[in-house]
């Protein structure tokens, strides 16, 4: 005789570590919202009227809030993902292992570079 404790669907409420994990997984929801907005933008390029409708949609306060949440979610996901990266793909050159801190810093530097490039593109090279 023995007993087997069953895990219920609410297992992730048991403690902080699991809740933070679920938060990381949930970052996909606001990102899907952002993606849909962007896709709608692409389709609206077909005619001028639809494009101006899309612009009005993008300027709606609720949509701006949603996209700000998406930015926060993306940064949170990146922060958690970047620290995992050196553990999953440690870089070894001969007998030397690249320190994890350096790899994390490198990834943030890449984020910064891409952000600056985008800024430069949208401002038409004026910054």
């Amino acid at each position: 005789m023995s007993y087997k404790p069953e895990l219920t669907g609410r297992w992730w409420l048991k403690h902080g570590h699991f809740k933070r994990y679920m938060l990381r997984e949930a970052t996909v929801i606001p990102l899907v919202f952002l993606l849909c907005s962007l896709l709608a933008g692409v389709f609206s390029l077909q005619d001028v009227e639809r494009f101006s409708q899309w612009q009005a949609y993008m300027a709606h306060p609720l949509v701006i809030i949603g996209h700000t949440v998406a930015l926060g979610a993306a940064l949170y996901h990146a922060a958690t993902f970047f620290v995992l990266f050196p553990r999953v793909m440690p870089i070894r050159i001969a007998n030397y292992t690249l320190p994890a801190r350096l790899m994390v810093a490198g990834q943030w530097a890449a984020v910064l570079a891409v952000a600056l490039l985008c800024l430069w593109l949208v401002t038409g090279g004026r910054v």
Partner: peptide
């Protein structure tokens, strides 16, 4: 989830 590595008493980092 990564909790396995947090609880490991020997620093094995099984999640890695």
């Amino acid at each position: 989830v990564g909790f396995c590595s947090d609880v490991c008493p020997k620093g094995v980092d099984p999640a890695a």
